[in-house]
Amino acid sequence: MRLAVTITMALSLIAGAAFAKTPYHDGTAEVIKPVDKNHPLDEVVSGYNFRKAMIRDVQDDDFENPGMLVADHGEELWDTVDGSAGKSLSQVFEGCAEVPLDVVGSVYPRFNNAASKVISLEQVINMCRETAMGAKPYKWESRDMLGITAYVRMQSRGSRVNVAVDGKASAAFERGKDLYYKRVGQLDMSCAHCHEDNYGNYIRADMLSQGNINGFPTYRLKWNGVGSTHRRFRGCMKNIRAKPLPYGHEDYVALELYTAWRGNGLKVETPAYRN
């Protein structure tokens, strides 16, 4: 059955290329112009608008959204004292992140001076735990890490994604861009084949989005739970029969920065709800 799925996946992309693009949103979608003139697309749309009402309605209701169970867990951790310094993350986090709490979620991944490189939100949190709290780092995809990243990013919910890609971040940005367009795996595909050339087209019964990451960590029905951007990257890699990189790999951080930049201007939706 999986064989059929995969072949149909590839075939439906051919069909997608052969027929006119179907309208992928119903007119209520927020369609923004790219913030940066070097953006490859004319319009930027959140993954939210590629989904049907059954899914959007759940995200629209904070109570129905099961992603909130994880964000709630993060809220508890936020104020919990942990580690040899006797501090909670809430006491030290802004110092580590180098930006105010309500901004962090819209500007990370970011060049962090203490780390002297571009790092993701997960990495800031672990850096903070190790250096400022004297606590053990969280495992990347653990409930604790997902909870705390969901909670922190939620503090920026509604504000616009605004990652910086110039100056000291430019090398990571260029690396991320190369990776985005690089063909990989047995299916010999790049991110751009699906999310730039074919968004709005169906891949089998699934409508391809632009691959924006403004809702991560996000609850996915496929996962029956919340996952990180890097988990999604790994899933995409497996879909195209490429070898996924480990969580937190430098290339994934670069790709995350580049992908976040493509969605600059979109509202942070964390924790989003997707299929």
Binding site: R2, I7, I14, A17, A18, Q186
Partner: peptide
């Protein structure tokens, strides 16, 4: 990418099968 996708070789199919 149409040409890429239109030829699913036997090797690809087998690769997909093993992945499955």
């Amino acid at each position: 990418q149409t040409t890429q996708f239109s030829s699913i070789s036997r090797r690809h199919a087998l690769a997909m099968l093993s992945a499955a």
